[in-house]
Write a protein that binds this DNA or RNA. Structure first.
Lengths: 196, 196
DNA sequence: AACAATACGGAACGCGGTTCCGCTTAGCAA
DNA sequence: TTGCTAAGCGGAACCGCGTTCCGTATTGTT
């Protein structure tokens, strides 16, 4: 919808070849650094890892959010697309919801510091926040609606709130062995069940 | 147990009068700044508000955690003490647990940024983390045990995990009107209910 | 009044994000 | 091939913030 291709699909050539190469390099470097040092790693580290100067990184990715989005876009897309698929293949909508949330939690928990940054109120991360929300809330809404109309869950919680709650529960899960975000999220989903 | 009085209760004189005055002033200033700018307000702001230099603030409160603890100690104590009280006055242990968690959530949600800082993995905040945990986890354990042995809830979640989860759910609740931490915490507690 | 001990203020340092500008290089045209 | 220009690059420099350090001021005691 934006970013890598220019839309009209013909004369999409505006970037110089070295620029595109550098963007690639930066994405790889950022991905690597994110794994080892988390998504809040110093910008200089990423630039160093990529072997480029500070200017280059800021030109390609004006905010850290842009970089994070670029690095994880594929996985977020995959998660978003898994929603409808799960709805079809799962026994019940509630099961689909549970599995999809699990997917999301796994994603967040394995990305060092991402959950924290997602909920950060720092301006500059709000485009990141917005991207995740835009992409995933509709999917979650669909699953939630399906589960609600099948009568399995209460319907007084909207997808936005659920997603934020799940995201929050994932914060800090990566370096605290006593804290299992998955379990708490399960509990939360269990709490959604309509009392019967 | 530490801090303001020297324990043995006789020759408790070690601090100079101006030092004690400054400590008071700093606490008041910090409390005020925390309200307006959150618990992550620049140290300089607090020093300025108190009308003291940087050295003074660091001498009295070597880490930000110390300052935060000092400012909120009374309220944390009150919360801790409310636990056993609620257990006696409430209809069921589960109800007591719910009310106590509510108390905790209200406390966190009204302290701008405190929940976030509580879960922060920054070294330097771990004494804050530890203080909250030391003080509140035993209380929560007591409530949880009571509710578990009365058969109201499943017993496979320990107090530590619950407290962390609740704390996490409170992050960012203060400036997002679409997100109601209390509701999600309720859901979590509902999820604790033993299926019957 | 003099003198330690204690405490104070704020300059200075380090780190990390961000900007800015002089230099380099890709891509094109003659 | 050679020149030219604009796109792109590197990294020094700047800013804000946490933290340290030390010369100075204050307290309380003799």
């Amino acid at each position: 919808m934006n970013g890598s291709d220019e839309g009209a699909g013909h004369a999409a050539r505006s970037k110089r070849a070295d620029a595109r190469r550098n963007e690639e390099t930066l994405l790889d470097a950022a991905a690597a650094v994110f794994v080892t040092s988390g998504v809040e790693a110093p910008v200089r580290d990423i630039a160093a890892k990529a072997g480029v100067g500070m200017g280059t990184i800021y030109r390609h990715f004006p905010t850290r959010a842009d970089l994070i989005i670029a690095v994880y876009r594929h996985q977020v897309e995959a998660c978003a697309e898994a929603g409808p698929a799960l709805l079809e293949t799962s026994a019940t909508p509630h099961a689909a919801l549970g599995q999809w949330i699990n997917l999301f939690v796994d994603f967040l928990v394995t990305k060092h510091g991402l959950a924290a940054v997602l909920q950060s109120d720092n301006a500059g991360f709000d485009t990141l926040h917005a991207y995740f929300l835009d992409r995933l809330v509709p999917v979650c809404t669909q699953l939630l609606d399906a589960a609600a109309s099948s009568g399995e869950i209460r319907s007084d919680l909207d997808a936005y709130e659920l997603m934020r709650g799940v995201g929050n529960l994932c914060i800090g899960a990566e370096h605290d062995s006593r804290y299992d975000a998955r379990r708490l999220v399960e509990l939360l989903i269990a709490g959604l069940r309509r009392p019967h």
